[in-house]
Amino acid sequence: MSKLKDTDIQTTIGWVLRTGVFLSVGICIFGAVIYLFRHGHDVANYHDFNGVPAFVHLSEILKSVIALRGRAIIQCGIILLIATPIIRVVCSAIGFAAEGDYLYTGITLLVLAIIFFSMLSGHGG
């Protein structure tokens, strides 16, 4: 385990975080322009919870993105934003493995397993 390797991981992770955040904000702004152009003067109603919207399954989101629907494009940006910390954890696992630190490769994989289990249990419930 050398200090240089730790610095390499830090540099990469910093880059992953910055890229993820700015890319997702860019996509959100693009989607927002379309959404507000089309629905800006609609009446907003969020007083009651409306249940699960159409943009939950990836295939439906992609179909709507191709149709250039603003809300679907925004949802893509949001999903990328949510994925950014998870991608960061994946990069850490690769980094620790490359460094030969198997204890922390294991710990990182356990964190990933918990995240993925929460995704799957969300589907089941």
Binding site: A32, A44, N50, V52, R71, I82, M119
Partner: peptide, 15 residues
Amino acid sequence: VVYLQRGYIDPGLSM
């Protein structure tokens, strides 16, 4: 991820 599947994260509000 759990909330996204439940529909708590609305694109119009999150943007």
